[in-house]
Amino acid sequence: MKILLRCCLLCLCLPLLAHAAELRIDLGQGARVWTTAQLLARADATAVTIPDDVAFRRPMHYRAVPLRALLPGLRPDQHLQFVATDGFAAEIPAAVILNRQGAEAWLAVEDSAHPWPASADNGKHAGPFYLVWTDPQAAHVSTEEWPYQLATIRAIPDVDARFPAIVPEARADAQVLRGYAVFKRTCFACHTMNGAGDARLGPDLNLPWNPTEYLRPDLLRGFIRNPQTLHRWPEAKMQGFPTTKEMSDADLDAVLAYLRYMAKRKTSPP
């Protein structure tokens, strides 16, 4: 009876918690904290339809605010980090947010009166803040640039400046350099490299072992496409990149080239 009562109380509290959630935005001149109620009440909050949503893998309808409107004074040369409550940390150049090529970033805000469903991939709750895009292909927005469960948006130095130990030498092979660019945009949102990085969702990809050192290329390629091909694990957090739309074969080859390159450049964690 006590357990049932606790469950009922928890169910009653969840909408209140979602409604009272806060998003912290810091562009370096003092942080601004927004609540769900404040964001939903903004004059520029509007209905947005996402035909092919990344988290739910189906059309979704949101109440959302143009992200640019929440980032006054943002410059194209700045770099943004989007930190989720589960340790995911997406790195997105400000120029992608400010682009005028058709793609537009929106902050979707969950209304407790109309809660979102569970994520299609892992059953997670995506709210109360989720970065979604209209016409993402116009700016080549990757699936890792759709962070949900957002807690913080902040302007910080870019990855190269913060973590020089993971940057390939300028004379490195062109495929390695391409792989590093893809790695930053995709893998680095969940993983660290040589202990460097802000993400806390997945394991380090070089210490103590780089995956290229213990997996055949075909197995590693299959694992990146679909982690369940290596181990059947319903609780696995990694969702993979199952189609070439999410990661092209050329980009996958480049990421493997970068991983092989870094396997010979292990360093102590910072």
Rank of each mutant, 00 (worst) to 15 (best):
residue 192 T to C: 03
residue 246 E to M: 08
residue 258 Y to S: 02
residue 200 R to W: 10
residue 82 F to G: 05
residue 78 Q to E: 15
residue 68 R to C: 06
residue 119 S to V: 13
residue 97 I to D: 04
residue 157 P to N: 11
residue 210 N to Q: 04
residue 65 V to P: 03
residue 123 G to E: 14
residue 48 V to C: 03
residue 223 F to W: 11
residue 166 I to A: 07
residue 107 L to W: 01
residue 91 E to W: 10
residue 57 R to E: 10
residue 4 L to S: 12
residue 78 Q to K: 13
residue 79 H to W: 03
residue 1 M to S: 13
residue 61 H to P: 01
residue 211 P to S: 06
residue 202 G to F: 09
residue 98 L to I: 12
residue 254 A to V: 02
residue 168 P to F: 12
residue 47 A to T: 14
residue 195 G to N: 11
residue 117 P to R: 06
residue 13 C to D: 03
residue 222 G to C: 07
residue 247 M to Q: 07
residue 7 C to S: 11
residue 105 A to T: 07
residue 231 H to C: 06
residue 267 T to Q: 11
residue 197 G to I: 03
residue 32 R to M: 05
residue 146 W to G: 00
residue 27 L to H: 14
residue 136 P to W: 01
residue 15 P to K: 13
residue 146 W to S: 03
residue 4 L to Q: 12
residue 255 V to R: 03
residue 175 Q to I: 08
residue 56 F to G: 08
residue 193 M to I: 11
residue 125 H to S: 10
residue 21 A to L: 02
residue 255 V to D: 00
residue 91 E to P: 04
residue 193 M to W: 09
residue 126 A to K: 12
residue 204 D to P: 06
residue 92 I to F: 09
residue 103 A to K: 00
residue 269 P to D: 09
residue 115 P to R: 12
residue 165 A to Y: 07
residue 22 E to K: 15
residue 114 H to I: 02
residue 86 D to P: 09
residue 73 G to N: 12
residue 70 L to C: 10
residue 206 N to K: 01
residue 89 A to V: 14
residue 228 Q to K: 03
residue 99 N to P: 08
residue 16 L to S: 15
residue 128 P to F: 03
residue 204 D to K: 05
residue 257 A to F: 08
residue 146 W to D: 00
residue 93 P to C: 02
residue 7 C to L: 15
residue 175 Q to S: 04
residue 19 H to K: 13
residue 128 P to H: 08
residue 243 T to V: 01
residue 181 A to H: 09
residue 13 C to P: 07
residue 131 L to C: 08
residue 61 H to N: 12
residue 122 N to R: 15
residue 188 F to E: 05
residue 174 A to V: 13
residue 35 T to N: 06
residue 158 D to L: 09
residue 229 T to L: 06
residue 269 P to L: 13
residue 26 D to W: 13
residue 38 Q to H: 10
residue 135 D to H: 14
residue 233 W to N: 13
residue 124 K to R: 15
residue 160 D to Y: 01
residue 176 V to W: 09
residue 127 G to K: 12
residue 184 K to V: 12
residue 184 K to S: 00
residue 261 Y to F: 03
residue 87 G to Q: 09
residue 268 S to V: 15
residue 171 R to S: 13
residue 37 A to C: 05
residue 101 Q to K: 15
residue 241 F to G: 00
residue 94 A to R: 04
